[in-house]
Design a protein around this nucleic acid. Sequence first.
DNA 1: TTTTCATATGAATATGTACTCATATGTTCA
DNA 2: TGAACATATGAGTACATATTCATATGAAAA
Lengths: 114, 114
Amino acid sequence: MAHDHDHKELLDKVRFELPTDELLCDLADLYKIFGDTTRIKIMYSLFEEEMCVCAIAELLGMTQSAISHQLKILKDANLVANRRDGKTIYYHLSDDHVRSIIAQGFEHLVEEQE
Amino acid sequence: MAHDHDHKELLDKVRFELPTDELLCDLADLYKIFGDTTRIKIMYSLFEEEMCVCAIAELLGMTQSAISHQLKILKDANLVANRRDGKTIYYHLSDDHVRSIIAQGFEHLVEEQE
DNA sequence: TTTTCATATGAATATGTACTCATATGTTCA
DNA sequence: TGAACATATGAGTACATATTCATATGAAAA
């Protein structure tokens, strides 16, 4: 068996503080979206300006299809939104959370390297 | 062909603002670690107190081996650290970044549901 | 030293997922 | 209406990875 010693008190305390499984899963799902280089690059590309799909594809040197698939994931998570102008569809960040979440990650990386 | 219209100026501008590939990959790798329910639960469990491996396993209802594998990933990323006390090894968060990164995610989720 | 306990770890498997390819949808212009 | 363009999407494939199982490591107690 793996454990013998007792920690029921500790477990009860921590269990009480732990959010619901559903919330923790949602949180993991959110970060899962940030955990892909292509999606990070797409989001970063939209930091300053809206861009159309083919511009993002050209910028990142990837196919239109690949970018489109990733944009769908970002859109389903409400991280980006789009508008149509004729044949072209322009994507932009849907709110400032993307910026602050990415900024927070950078901070950790920077302090890591010191 | 996918694109016909011109956006060289935009691409040059955005390309200039984009961080290096290496940095963007590091960022994605960091978030990848947060993008797993088990690891999120482990980190959350360590919010208030240090815990030994078997306590975490019992808390989450998972095997000691599974938890140990995930703790290694967290430790390699400098997100948790440990200390030995006899046969037992206690893990704790290595700094406050974990807390603030998770808090940031929560904020996004909460505003999402409004 | 041998046994027991706590944890770590390598290999195998099963599941998830990013990209490709082909094609569908929707818009504009001739 | 038909052709060209921009984007979306379903199926298939290749690769990554979380967990399990068996076993190794390392420390304390008998």
